[in-house]
Amino acid sequence: MPDLDSISILTLWTAIAVYAGSFIAYAFDLARRSSATTAEVQSPALVAAGGADARGAGAPASGTAAGGKGKSGKPRFIFARIGTALAILGWLFHLTSALTRGFAAGRVPWANLYEFAMIGTLLIMGVYLVVLTRIDLRYLGTFISGLVVVLLGAAAANFYVAVTPLVDPLKSVWLVIHVFVASLSTALFALAFALSVMQLMQSRRERRIAEGIESAGPGFLRTLPNTARLENMAYHFTVVGFIFWTFTLIAGSIWAQDAWGRYWGFDVKETWTFIIWVLYAGYIHARATRGWRGNPSAWLSITGFTAVIFNFAIVNVFFKGLHAYSGLS
């Protein structure tokens, strides 16, 4: 029998392949939404969608509900279903990979950059799938599976390190708590980011429709909720993520106090965690500030997540600091 870490690697690459399949299926789904609805949706619905808050909370931007009942019958979104099924399958492989890696190492599987990427993407996909059981967010499927394939593929190809014993500073319960919660908030911010991008696209489309411009943007937007709804969802994911991030910051400080003898020292990683926290606090304020709700706040959400990714990919690898746990040399 091969050793556990080899199983972990094998299942990880299987997961990546299955996720890639999921990405393709979701991409087909978006294409189908674009073409199918052109025929199905009558123009009055389109006009209604243009009006600022003419539509209800859960209602999509046009007559065809995303996966629900529409005037023109039930759209089936076959490819979205395939995409989700593959995402679940990939996630099971992914989970197996994380578990076997953990057992191989005899500790939690998030102690170096390779493992951070593994657990972070596991949580992104996990949160997405959990949310799917309550809200139909499958129009984010391409983004989520695409993001996971890229991050996971890059990590598996470039960041892989063999299982080694933990260095002393990582031998702490805070490794379990702090890193896990940080990954969880990253997952929530990722969903919020995707929704904010959709919000901007939808807002552009709504504006163009209101101005009577023929080509209002990608057709799949017709099957998505309206701007206000997208913004609300993005906000709710962000505030949950923000609470977790606040906790991450506090837990990290407690750990730093034990490991480095001070709770805060503007180490590079600490600084970026703080920057991200301030950016999202700005986002939350922006949504409550006249003139900043809507597109400007969406841009802040996008900036926030860009900083999260920067903090993960760039700061870990290229910046010098105390958080030298990438395991790379």
Binding site: F266, T271, I275, V278, A281, G282, H285, A288
Partner: peptide, 28 residues
Amino acid sequence: SMRVALVLLLILAIAAIPGSVFPQRTAD
């Protein structure tokens, strides 16, 4: 006002960046 609070928050975020780019006397 909310606007100034928000702008100050964003400036704070930006102002913190150079400290992660250049070595700091206290940390390094």
